[in-house]
Write a protein that binds this DNA or RNA. Structure first.
Lengths: 353, 353
DNA sequence: CTGAAAGCGCTTACAG
DNA sequence: CTGAAAGCGCTTACAG
């Protein structure tokens, strides 16, 4: 008789009525809060099943005082590395009751800055920002002190947690792999620039030094964007200017590596016979191009998980900020967190040393 | 004095207080509902600006009786085509007040079926499902009649709207382009199978017939998945079995095309000199591989927009379902909707005819 | 064109 | 371990 026209879907009340308990008890069971008596629990769960109950997240978030939304800022969603990462973040965030609002920065400084100062059309609980160009100072100086986690390659001293793989160690692994493949004159496409400290590029240089190999400035090329076009242009410029050709090349991303290979081909060089090439990211296409691309494969699900956890720690920390004197040590809400990575050797570095 | 500890952020009430009007009026302005007096509107907007008001979507959706969430089912989010599409859908959905819950199907029949019958952990307003394997009958027979829009290549007679580009016309354009590039023995990797009617493959065949060219069964290869590996395997198998080699090849996706090119190279064939190759999708890497890949570029933002609009039409239609006798013609909530596409000619088909 | 009030479906002190 | 009731921030008939 009590037909509700607007919401035909079962509510918590309906479950409570069927189970013969109060809403509070159902809520306790559904959220696994308080230790409910086993018999009650079973009864409630059966009722949930029977009426086909699904929680209304809007109501839940409203009651909890949460927006239920976090922002994920990435360069572009059609770059497989970030798309895959986004998928992992969406999944990890769902586990914390969050929806993810995608924000595409375009991958340049202006875009990252816009995201950082982001004027979002709705309330958000925090932001995970993949940043490549923002420096620690600018991030620390942002006016809005809302929860923030940064994803990226650069060090970030300060109160904002940074999540990523150990890019410097990965860069060193790349150097060792290229040297093992016979590389002696090793080029770097995506060299460190004045403003940003690229761990992976620095790691390559570390590795060259450790092996007693020369770091040749004319082979170290910065790029303006991590795209195939930029990689192709930087590589072509290097090949045109250099006296003696490189015998190995590290591009800071797989996409850049694809462009570099185009430039090498255009210059009459073969990969890996003349030049061994490594990329970084392990995008799905790395194994489909010819030659298939050797690369570093970061554990993206781990990165996503760590990022969401760091955000949650801050949100929770904020709620108790006035009570706790230092939630810094407890919450682990700042500092760097490293996710694992793997070196994948494919055709582009396969040759007799 | 009235310090609210749980929600420090300004609410509609605060705006109303500052503007000196009722909540209803603020709501009207914010949602551009009723025609509010210009002076009032200006006053309210100034108050919104002053207090820095952002609507709480949870509260809004709760009051409106909407979940505020739709599901987007795609094969995988790390495939640039779908990642890019997802980005567009997220954007289009935001314009309708929806968040997008990503659901990865894996790209096989079982996964698509799981999504279709999807048991989501929360309430949703509807679903946009990218389907490649589900047939019209199975889609029509689903138990839950909630709003659904299908994205895909196959025809779908029935009440569920289908959004996509005109794949058959695109396939015909591919045929014409390959023929113009001198193709006479044209291979197809991703041929129609018994269960699914692939418009793009069919279109290629149409184009061959229209040009009076033979449709050679030994050059038409079905594949089990739209991946580089599957494309490589299918192409390699074809090259091993065929008597006379093809001089052109159409792969049903760019990724499949990359695999096909690997197989052609392994067989000692050059692209485009020996075999002209076309892909489909225009993923960002299509221009970065060597040779750069000719392909069909669908208007993904248009696809996304049409899909979200078709979903909105159904949701709105449902609300009035009991009142209106036929919202079918009015809402446009079923039938096929085509988005534009473009043929992009690059190196992989560039040769003297 | 505008206001006062009920209600959306949850959670959470508070009391038992 | 459980219940009755207030409140989260909006929208929306309803009355003016």
């Amino acid at each position: 008789m009590t037909t509700d026209r607007r919401s035909p879907r079962p509510r918590l009340t309906d479950v409570a009525a069927v189970a013969g308990v109060s809403m509070k008890t159902v809520s306790n069971v559904v959220n696994s809060y308080a230790p409910v008596a086993e018999a009650t629990r079973t009864k409630v769960l059966a009722a949930v099943e029977q009426v086909g109950y699904r929680p209304n997240l809007s109501a839940r978030n409203l009651a909890r005082g949460r927006a239920g939304v976090i922002v994920l800022g990435v360069p572009r969603l059609d770059l497989p590395y970030f798309a895959s990462l986004a998928g992992s973040v969406v999944e990890a965030a769902a586990g914390h009751g969050w929806f993810v609002l995608m924000h595409q920065t375009g991958g340049d400084l202006a875009g990252e800055r816009r995201a950082l100062l982001g004027d979002h059309p709705q309330r958000i609980d925090g932001m995970i920002l993949s940043s490549q160009w923002l420096d620690a100072q600018e991030i620390a100086a942002r006016p809005d002190p809302s929860p923030l986690v940064v994803l990226g390659d650069h060090r970030l001293p300060g109160p904002v947690p940074r999540i990523g793989i150990d890019n410097r160690a990965a860069g060193r692994a790349v150097a060792e792999h290229l040297i093992a493949a016979g590389g002696r004159r090793i080029a770097l496409i995506g060299a460190p620039s004045r403003e940003v400290d690229h761990g992976r590029a620095q790691g390559l240089i570390d590795g060259l030094r450790a092996a007693g190999l020369p770091v040749l400035p004319e082979l170290m090329r910065p790029i303006t964007a991590n795209t195939g076009d930029a990689g192709e242009a930087a590589t072509a410029a290097m090949l045109a200017e250099v006296d003696e050709l490189p015998d190995a090349l590290f591009a800071v991303t797989d996409w850049v590596a694809m462009g570099a290979i185009r430039a090498l081909h255009a210059h009459g060089l073969e990969v890996p016979a003349d030049v061994a090439v490594m990329g970084f990211d392990d995008i799905p296409y790395a194994r489909s191009v010819s030659p298939s691309l050797s690369t570093i494969a970061p554990d993206r699900p781990a990165v996503a998980r760590l990022a969401v956890e760091a955000l949650e720690a801050q949100v929770t920390g904020m709620a108790y900020a006035s009570a706790a004197t230092d939630d810094r040590d407890a919450g682990g809400s700042d500092g760097d967190h490293f996710a694992p990575f793997e070196l994948v050797a494919r055709e582009s570095t396969r040759r007799e040393a």
